[in-house]
Design a binder for these strands. Structure first.
Lengths: 216, 216
DNA sequence: AAAATAGTGTCTGTGAGACACTATGTT
DNA sequence: AACATAGTGTCTCACAGACACTATTTT
């Protein structure tokens, strides 16, 4: 049974491809990267978890469509989606010719008040190959690479930590994104150039209080 | 006067954007990078030089459309177009909502037998800002960055030289792409890991004959 | 005092960059 | 012999990575 839109036409009735937007919304939970999935509710696709996505409207930019997909499909506020590229396999969508412009965003876990209904945060290390429909596995892989590249030399580039933080807190974030552990002295030397000292010290913990920094 | 397609409809009659493909076809001439431009022949656009482009058909991939644009608009055979990204400003095309998926390719100058008719190779250093229509300046800028990144660590990644070449020939190519000059000893050390010696020597030149290499 | 965390002096290895020398061809 | 190009030994500098020591707090 062929997919039909609101006017009863199949996509093949049009002489041009459709353009969709899919978003890998990443966050950091439990010392690792996780991606937001939502449960598809269609005839033959109940129970399938996928990335939030939508079709691009004529009067909006790709970034606006990405933010709309997050809002409508996941009730979530994205921040600043970045474009990852176009997935264009001719047979990637059984409903017809649909290009997907993949996007990625990285937000603090607190902004994801996922009540649970049809939403799920999947640790990226636990996503088996071919566990997602379409080419969403590929999108997640690119998103993770994007996040790791972004965090290699720059302290907290997406501002996941608060305004002020200690070097240990910063290191924990970067280790979660990278999926590996760092040495504190090397990490300090890489990041210190992009940080300003606030002059204040962390309070309340055990051990020597750490200086607080903010992003330069 | 609104642009109309073959069936007399404007793009606004459709409820989805069109998808175009534009290609920055780069080559190396006169010690520098140049990009292939073709002269647009439309009502209000004669005399405008632009990148070759076309609309994506439903039954082809983006790479296929890019190669078709080069063939139809420039009579040129591309090799392996790479995707640079999607340009999606809502007002980027006055005819309606058109997304452009920018592509880049790099080919030997010999494959560009540009008879001259409506075709031109523009050195990228001589392209002033806003000299190209749409956002083609931006596409060329991204294409140049792509070529330079590609050549930073890899010897002749697109095989512009023949099967065998000397280190000096390789260096001249990489200097043309980068737009700067290198020291031969540093250049040698960067490239030597990706090269195999053929055992033969260059002949016919003045000075000590150089060893011939091929890409590993 | 013991434990925990913060911060740093210093050593090592690697590699880019450059100078300057040697090597081998042509004119 | 003079010149031109090829190829390389070696020095310097910067920096990543790591060890191990000192510093400052809580318990």
């Amino acid at each position: 049974m062929m997919w039909r839109d609101h006017s009863g036409r199949t996509l093949a009735d049009y002489d041009r491809p459709s353009v969709a937007v899919d978003v890998a919304l990443l966050t950091v939970v439990d010392d690792g990267l996780a991606v937001l999935l939502h449960e598809r509710t269609g005839e033959h696709e109940t129970g399938r978890w996928a990335l939030p996505g939508t079709f691009l409207h004529v009067d909006e930019t790709l970034a606006e469509a990405a933010l709309r997909a997050l809002r409508d499909k996941a009730g979530v506020t994205g921040h600043r989606p970045d474009q990852l590229g176009v997935l264009d396999r001719v047979d990637r969508d059984s409903r017809g010719r649909v290009l997907s412009v993949a996007h990625v965003d990285l937000v603090p876990a607190e902004t994801l008040l996922t009540g649970g209904d049809g939403l799920r945060l999947a640790p990226v290390t636990e996503l088996a190959d071919a566990s997602l429909p379409f080419d969403h596995d590929e999108i997640v892989a690119r998103a993770v690479r994007w996040a790791r590249d972004l965090h290699r030399l720059d302290p907290d580039p997406r501002g996941l930590l608060g305004a002020e933080f200690t070097l240990l807190e910063l290191q924990r974030l970067h280790e979660a994104v990278a999926g590996t552990e760092f040495q504190k002295d090397t990490f300090r030397r890489i990041m210190i150039g992009g940080l300003d000292e606030t002059g204040a010290l962390s309070r309340g913990g055990v051990g020597k209080p750490a200086r607080l920094f903010r992003r330069a």
